[in-house]
């Protein structure tokens, strides 16, 4: 009984530690006082100011544009790559899979700087395009890693069955394989979208010409002192990313449950 009680306290402490800072951030985003120490009553004015601030609105536009574009492109490239990797012989497959894991495990700062150097070397003007390319690049491995397990679960005869019934390879891929692995593709896409919205380090090094996303804008604003709008903005970002991650996790659970049922 005591042990169970202690366990509960322990878990509560861990989560308290993790979430109190965010909670305070959220509370202060509704604080009427400009001071960070005192509570001056409830207000939504920071949120209102947020949406009238042209700098933040432009950052929001870039963030969402980059997120949508990079998600779509990375999902397509990643899915095609996953199908290719799945067909490979085991030896080649393990080499390619290691190459896929390295960018995932690599420090963001290394990825960011190396991309920046590459863009400069290629004489690409840092800006929207380079930012987009960078986001596509770091999103592709996550899509591959979400789609591959679905391909492994696939009955190997499904593709052959479609060919057997008269479908061309293209038709079989489109009508049978893609619908079967769609849950993995969507999960990969959601993950890519979340990561793109979330990214600061890589974006910081690969953008320029006045193009900056939300995280970069917050960073530069914070250097000039924390404005309460930043609390509001951070709160919105937190909830956006949280809800996307919840969707990804619920989907992942559903998939594993489905698999258990089949077995």
């Amino acid at each position: 009984m005591v042990g169970r009680f202690l366990k509960k306290i322990y878990v509560s402490l861990v989560y308290l530690f993790l979430y109190v800072p965010i909670l305070i951030l959220i509370i202060f985003s509704f604080n009427d006082s400009k001071s960070r120490g005192t509570w001056g009553g409830f207000t939504l004015k920071w949120y209102k100011e947020l949406f009238t601030d042209s700098q933040i609105m432009s950052a929001l536009y870039y963030t969402i544009a980059i997120a949508i574009a990079s998600t779509i492109i990375a999902t397509i490239i990643g899915t095609v790559a996953a199908i290719g990797i799945h067909q490979m012989k085991i030896k080649h497959k393990s080499i390619v899979m290691n190459l896929t894991y390295i960018p995932v495990l690599n420090a963001d700062i290394v990825t960011g700087i190396s991309l920046m150097i590459l863009f400069i070397f290629l004489k690409l003007q840092l800006g929207f395009m380079t930012l987009l390319i960078a986001h596509i690049t770091f999103n592709i491995p996550y899509v591959i890693l979400s789609v591959l397990p679905k391909l492994k679960q696939l009955d190997t005869n499904l593709y052959e069955a479609a060919l057997d019934l008269g479908a061309t390879p293209w038709h079989a891929l489109w009508r049978v394989i893609i619908p079967e692995i769609m849950p993995g593709i969507i999960t990969g896409g959601l993950l890519a979208f979340t990561l793109s919205i979330d990214d600061f380090v890589i974006s910081f090094f690969t953008t320029g010409s006045g193009v900056s996303n939300l995280s970069i804008t917050i960073y530069s604003m914070a250097r000039r002192g924390i404005k309460p709008q930043i609390n509001a903005l951070s709160t919105i970002m937190f909830f956006t990313v949280l809800s996307l991650l919840l969707i990804v996790n619920v989907r992942a659970n559903k998939n594993t449950q489905g698999k258990e049922n089949v077995i």
Binding site: A161, L163, D164, G166
Partner: peptide
Amino acid sequence: MPPYKRKVNTVFQKYALFPHMNVFDNISFG
């Protein structure tokens, strides 16, 4: 000749039915 041009059809060992389709869509696929 590729399989989709042959006038033969196969019943696979583990059936290889398309799980995302219902019975009608499976049978009518060809």
